[in-house]
Design a protein around this nucleic acid. Structure first.
Lengths: 111, 111
DNA sequence: CGCGCGTGTAAGTTGACGCTAACGTAAGTC
DNA sequence: GACTTACGTTAGCGTCAACTTACACGCGCG
């Protein structure tokens, strides 16, 4: 998750994602869309792959990269939790209070 | 948007966001939750503020920071578009193909 | 108005990251 | 098995970002 966030924080990697989003592409084909050298793109692809945002498939000497929706799904879910968990916390507090009113409460919920 | 992405890519800033998510807090109060110095937290707060993820309010010499849901909303929407636009593109391609079958198409889509 | 409190700001250091150039590697071709 | 193709990998360099230390600023109080 950390990795995915840092991956999309980089503009060029987002551009790469937009490229492969519409269909799979070879490394060279991706690199041809940019002004930087191929090794640079190769490194970006490694980062994206390890972040789970793209998948790699091999065909002979070619390497074909493909957008990986599940990776972005995790990311989206994480961002969503960023403020929905606020409601969860409020709910937890309400539950604790109710429990306390019943006299049960050592509150073992601490990590 | 770029700013918001780079802001949440940093672990400590995410922790700060989680802190102020449950209610507003002064700068010193936030800093007391971490091992780093107060200036470091102050810099993080500046980054978060300029990214639109928190808002700042002043009360005398104190500065009170508050979570800003709209900022995260933009972020969430951006991530969402990251792959919903894929469907739009597929729809475009379908339209182009249909147009081509009618004999229209020199395929000027190249940038 | 001098002084303390709560913060932001500036300067300097260190570590991480993106880039290039050179080299290494695996698959196909003759 | 030499040669080409299509890549990844490594070493080195410049830049940026996070941190600390030291200083500056605004508010309130006597």
């Amino acid at each position: 998750m950390e990795a995915a966030l840092k991956a999309i924080a980089e503009p060029r990697r987002r551009q790469i994602l937009v490229l492969v989003r519409d269909g799979e592409m070879t490394a060279g084909e991706i690199a041809s869309h940019f002004e930087v050298t191929r090794p640079a793109i190769s490194q970006h692809l490694t980062v994206l792959k390890e972040a789970g945002l793209v998948s790699e498939r091999r065909d002979g000497t070619k390497r074909i990269y493909r957008f990986r929706p599940e990776g972005v799904e995790e990311l989206r879910a994480f961002i969503e939790d960023m403020w929905t968990e606020r409601l969860v916390t409020l709910k937890d507090e309400a539950e604790h209070e109710e429990r306390r009113r019943r006299g049960a409460g050592p509150a073992t919920g601490r990590r």
